[in-house]
């Protein structure tokens, strides 16, 4: 934790605000940024997997699979991320205790789970829409060539749906990056958590929050550029559009 490292130089547990040059905020903020990045990457990846599972599940011919997918999508789109996070972190262990199960989960896991379940539910609708946008002629051609339904999905439909879903996935990933700030509320040491610590300590709200804003914005720019890159590479076969 950042304040501890500085004990030799600064009387950090003093009650009065401490004078610290803004560059001193950087090491703890960067440490937090690394947590934020990892949270974003893991939850976006896991979220994408959930999105595919639920999006494809929703279109399945199997009624049970469809019902589970719809229930998941509606539940997580219909409740707030903050409540989901609190529920996983605070309520689930107690609920588990009541039935004799140890369901305590570390904050990192709770954070990643809540974020990915949330983005997965929104992403599922994107996946479903993109799959449905593939022309029926493609299914007919696949059937005429005797592809099985599974082969058609894997070789014909999904490869064409992926570039279609990329712009929305890019938005969701950025949304997810911003949402990671909520995990600071279950005391995960992300960027926002660090900023909050520094602010409590220095009372220098303007500088700290401005830096925080800039860092999130910078990350969002990089993330957007990365998603564009992926979009471009998965859509290489498409006609160039101006």
């Amino acid at each position: 934790m950042w304040p501890h490292r500085r004990t030799a130089r600064q009387p950090i547990f003093a009650a009065d605000p401490v004078e610290v040059h803004w560059t001193e905020y950087l090491p703890p903020l960067l440490e937090g940024a690394w947590v934020t990045i990892r949270l974003t990457v893991f939850s976006t990846l896991l979220g994408a997997i959930l999105a595919f599972a639920a999006g494809v599940g929703r279109l399945s011919r199997n009624g049970a699979l469809r019902a589970v997918s719809v229930a998941y999508i509606e539940l997580f789109r219909g409740t707030s991320l903050l409540v989901q996070l609190f529920w996983l972190y605070f309520a689930l262990p107690l609920a588990g205790q009541a039935v004799g199960l140890d369901l305590r989960i570390p904050p990192v896991i709770a954070g990643i789970l809540a974020l990915s379940l949330n983005i997965g539910a929104y992403g599922a609708e994107v996946v479903r829409g993109a799959i449905q946008s593939v022309h029926t002629g493609q299914h007919e051609a696949a059937l005429a060539l005797n592809f099985t339904p599974r082969q058609t999905l894997a070789r014909v439909t999904i490869p064409q749906a992926i570039p279609e879903m990329m712009p929305s996935f890019g938005n969701l990933a950025v949304q997810n990056l911003k949402d990671t700030a909520l995990v600071s509320l279950i005391s995960l040491g992300d960027m926002t958590f660090r900023a909050e610590q520094i602010r409590n300590f220095t009372q220098d709200s303007v500088t700290v929050y401005s830096m925080l804003l800039a860092m999130y914005f910078g990350m969002a720019l990089v993330l957007t550029a990365m998603m564009r890159g992926i979009e471009h590479s998965v859509g290489r076969w498409r006609p160039v559009r101006s």
Binding site: G137, Q138, E140, A141, F147
Partner: peptide
């Protein structure tokens, strides 16, 4: 179905596959 082939008005080629893959995909997979 395996005894028949069909050519569609709108071609319905697989746009994400090269010409070669369009032709080899079903023989390989099916």
């Amino acid at each position: 179905r395996g005894e028949m082939g069909m050519v569609f008005q709108q071609f319905n080629l697989f746009p994400h596959m090269t010409v070669l893959r369009n032709i080899t995909e079903a023989p390989v997979r099916v």
